[in-house]
Design a protein around this nucleic acid. Structure first.
Lengths: 221, 221
DNA sequence: AGATCCCTTACAGAAACCTGTAAGGGATTA
DNA sequence: TAATCCCTTACAGGTTTCTGTAAGGGATCT
């Protein structure tokens, strides 16, 4: 079993529960727990420098903002720099995120080794995940596959740029003008209209209002 | 200290962490833990019947849906029936909800005794909350007060009804027609316009799209 | 009773939304 | 080179949104 593990989780209760699970059920000898991404990354760096690197990182994705200044503000950012620094590090993500697109991106872009949804069976699954990853396999919470076929349209950069401005209350004409002024292209009102109309189809929305509402509710923007 | 406590929390990791805190730090003798509201309510009922009622309930608000059929689907519902059945039961809510309006409603409508935000200091605060509540005082996570002055406009039933339909993609005329058909009043397009315009001011939105987006993001609808 | 306030409603006009048609241009393919 | 596809853009027109004015009615206060 893994000997040296770091846990990154900002919720104290969850943190405590995971710690107990990892030390009791999995007999991890050296478990370090962190509440901030920056601290976790420093710890990884120092351990690597001392030729005694961590073998596994278990991390959340969302970290609450508080009074502490942060460079790394999300699990994604932590994973990116950790992976770059130590390519052989095993990474298991434990989060509430249950959007298969987001999860897939983690496996593809950051080569994570396991994904566990927070939930009623979170700790059972985490134990399985650690075992699987220890044997060089991957693990994904079973409930994710069920919803995988749902809706897998991607929002590209242009979509997001438009949606951001609309969410902020700009009219399509104003969005067009803004893009023109900033030399962003495409920028015509007509093209923006077309893009949004396409999103109506993809997300089964009837107008801008219902589209933005749905996307906000689903956490896509 | 409380002797007989029930914990209602569906996330296994969090559940485990809280259990450890309550038993280790607070020396609760009889702690029962539940993952579903219905089970928790049954347990309260049976204990009351046997003249050995629970003294304290610690509960989450949001419970994930799964394959199990549920009557009580939220902490609010559980609290309502539990309070009706056993008025002297102490209730502490432990949740991610950080909207002061929602939290205030819990204190006013359901007479809860404490509120703890999940977060980096969740367990520390929970220990304080239990101690305060044991001495017949109330407890509220300090970070809530900070944001309490922010924006405390209430959405009444009419507001909510309109917003729900708009979020669903209906035009204001369609909302008006629907209300008329269902004999709900007021229902004129003009009144609906006026209400929404008032919300633009209160929530600093420029149009329906940005209003719905903001409210969705803030979890108000 | 009269004055006042607030909510509801009607109406009007300018702005914005939404959809369809069509033209131009770059990239790909035959 | 020609045909085709796709993206961008312009434009048109019907619908919806948004704001302002004004009228009517119920509740409250004097």
């Amino acid at each position: 079993m893994f000997k040296k593990v770091v846990l990154v989780e900002d919720f104290q209760g969850e943190n405590q529960g995971i710690t107990e699970t990892l030390t009791e059920k999995l007999a991890i000898e050296e478990l370090q727990t962190e509440f901030y991404c920056d601290n976790a990354f420093n710890r990884l760096k120092v351990a690597l420098k001392n030729n005694d690197p961590y073998q596994l990182m278990v991390t959340d994705l969302f970290f609450e903002k508080d009074h502490v200044n942060r460079k790394l503000t999300s699990g994604q950012e932590l994973i990116k720099v950790a992976r770059a620094q130590q390519p052989e590090l095993k990474i298991i993500v434990h989060s509430m995120e249950n959007n298969p697109i987001q999860v897939n991106a983690l496996f593809k872009e950051h080569k994570i080794n396991g994904y566990v949804c927070k939930g009623r069976r979170g700790m059972v699954e985490l134990v399985n995940a650690v075992n699987e990853v220890f044997h060089n396999r991957t693990f994904v919470s079973p409930q994710l596959n069920l919803t995988a076929a749902n809706n897998s349209f991607e929002l590209d950069a242009f979509d997001r740029a438009i949606l951001k401005e609309l969410a902020n209350g700009l009219t399509k004409k104003e969005v067009s003008d803004k893009f023109k002024k900033e030399n962003r292209t495409p920028n015509s009102e007509s093209t923006i209209d077309k893009r949004i109309s396409k999103l109506y189809d993809e997300y089964e929305a009837k107008n801008t209002t219902s589209l933005l509402f749905k996307l906000a509710k689903e956490g896509k923007i």
